[in-house]
Each structure stands twice: as structure tokens, then as C-alpha cells.
């Protein structure tokens, strides 16, 4: 079975930016070329580009992408979400936060944070 590239990016393209009424794809935060899927090795890697280098929402965007993929992909996949190299001021710090399983889990325990993430993931009413 081949999990097509388009399939994975399809899941995240509709996520909306917390500060913007537009979706991440419309803002060019996620692009298809920056999503890599390896079906044999059960790996998914997503690079996203914050709108500006000092975007304060970068962690939240990353977290939303990660949560969306956790919910949408079979659990055999390891999901890696990080910032496109060289597009954010505190790239390393954000990547570290997103890579840390414990911290992601802890963040989702936080009702307020979860609320914001869920709002980003709710499909907009037509």
C-alpha cells in the first residue's frame, strides 16, 4: 500500500492559522514539496514555514499540524514536524519542543491550549 504524498498534505492543508482567517495552505505555510512520506519505514516528515521569522504562533502551528496528523494517520507512523530550516528566529527551540513526545502530550493536557488547537482544526463552516 502506498500512502500518496498528496494524501498526507491533504490532511493539513485545511488547518487554519490562529491569527488569520486563511488556511495554512493559502498562506503557503505548508507546501506539498515539504511533506515527505515513507510508507515502508512508517515515517512522515513535515516542514512548515512560519509567515514571518518572528511569528509567535510557530509552536502552535506546529502543534496543530502534529495533532492533526496524529488523529488522521494510522498509529504505525512516526510523525516528525519541524520548521523549514532558516525561516524562523528560534527554529531550534521550536523544533525541540515539537519533537519532544512528553512535552506534546503535556501541552495537550492543557485545556486552554487544546482549545486553541481544536479551533484551528475545526473545519470552517461553509
Amino acid at each position: 500500500m502506498l500512502l500518496a504524498l498528496t494524501h498526507c498534505s491533504h490532511h493539513i492543508r485545511s488547518i487554519s492559522d490562529p491569527e488569520h482567517p486563511l488556511s495554512l495552505e493559502e498562506l503557503n505555510v505548508v507546501e506539498e514539496v515539504r511533506v515527505k512520506v515513507n510508507d515502508q519505514e512508517n515515517n512522515v516528515s513535515v516542514e512548515f514555514t512560519p509567515t514571518i521569522p518572528h511569528c509567535s504562533m510557530a509552536t502552535l502551528i506546529g502543534l496543530s499540524i502534529k495533532v492533526k496528523l496524529l488523529r488522521a494517520l494510522p498509529d504505525r507512523f512516526k510523525i516528525d514536524v519541524h520548521i523549514t530550516p532558516g525561516t524562523h528566529a528560534s527554529e531550534d527551540a521550536v523544533n525541540k519542543q515539537l519533537g519532544d513526545k512528553e512535552r506534546v502530550a503535556a501541552a495537550l493536557e492543557n485545556a486552554h491550549l487544546l482549545e486553541v488547537v481544536n479551533q484551528c482544526l475545526s473545519t470552517r463552516p461553509a
Binding site: 494524501h7 491533504h10 475545526s122
Partner: peptide, 17 residues
């Protein structure tokens, strides 16, 4: 595709936000 759509909605159900 259908499964993802359904499961995402169910995750949102009863969850803050």
C-alpha cells in the same frame, strides 16, 4: 479519506474548543 474526516470530527466532540 472518509475515515479521517469522521475521526477528526469525533476527536473534536466534547473536547475544549
Amino acid at each position: 479519506k472518509e475515515a479521517v474526516a469522521a475521526r477528526s470530527e469525533w476527536f473534536l466532540l466534547g473536547s475544549p474548543g
